[in-house]
Amino acid sequence: MSTEPLLKIEGLTKHFPIRTGLLGRQVGAVKAVDAVDLTIEEGTTLGLVGESGCGKTTLGRCIVRAHDPTGGRMLYRRPDGSVVDVAGLSEKELKPYRGQVRMIFQDPHSSLNPRKTLREIIGEPMRAHRYGAKEEIHARVGELLDRVGLRPEYANRYPHAFSGGERQRVGIARALALSPRLVVADEAVSALDVSVRAQILNLLTDLQEESGIGFLFVSHDLGIIEHVADVVAVMYLGKVVEQGPTGELYGRPLHPYTEALLSAVPDPDPAARKRRERIKLLGDIADPAHVPPGCPFHPRCVYAKDVCRTDPPPLREVGGRRVACHFAEELELRGVPDPDVREDPVMTA
């Protein structure tokens, strides 16, 4: 293993200006991503979870440079081991990076051009990056289709002939075309049916084991994140509020927001309905344009005290994890009990 992570994000910030009036005067900013630090190691999956409006999608888009970050650094380790800050690269300098860092989108219906065949769609990144002669690209498209579980003969067909799950496979094949090192999957399975979703998740796991791709998996679904991620980061209003290894974070959350999210997930086990008690969140998610002072989560937090209303808690190390809560050590928060030992409601990690 090399020492440097595949991607190291430091203080990444993305603000969207709020403009008003005839002259478009800026009156404020939506702090969609606010000083976020994260690392993604080769061959591992970082799960990014949070409610809508928490900035998880913006963060993913900054990484593939679909958005230009307002501030911060994104240190990417090239295949030769050298490290480059991709936040500051020009469009021309970005080109090799764009081949190595790819994205899978949520909606398989709108992310594929309906007027192009699968061969053109999957071959497009290869043409843009001068992969090789036409025949080589054709052969590679066939290979990719086969790898994602579609018949190579389908290459001449158009996206409308395929179901949602098949289209998502096409999107994955396109992302894999240039053998990427990092893939950002933004709600990649959220639009799919349960049975198809399992197929796609298994496919992504296999691909990672084969070629050591690093994944940033963005989702609002805690069940899926637990399933795919090695490390989970929970975002709230543009900031990471808790981060840690998946099992530890789910087993014993340190941030009240993580606890509330976990308790809100509906469990299909009918017995669990009676056993588990939901942690009530007060009100709705706050407006990212008007972030509350102090801890941004305090208006919804059942444990909030006076200090939470005034002092923003820093993201700090607690027991090998990172958490932004003044009372991380004192609170005894409930996680998800291991299903095999569910009879015991009090679980400590």
């Binding site: 049975s195 069940g223 399933h227």
Partner: peptide
């Protein structure tokens, strides 16, 4: 259908039992 659902508290990174075909 029930088997193919990721459920909280299961050991992560296990394979889901997908329904074959579509």
């Amino acid at each position: 259908l029930l088997r193919s659902m990721p459920r909280l508290g299961r050991a992560s990174r296990t394979r889901l039992a997908a329904i074959k075909g579509m």
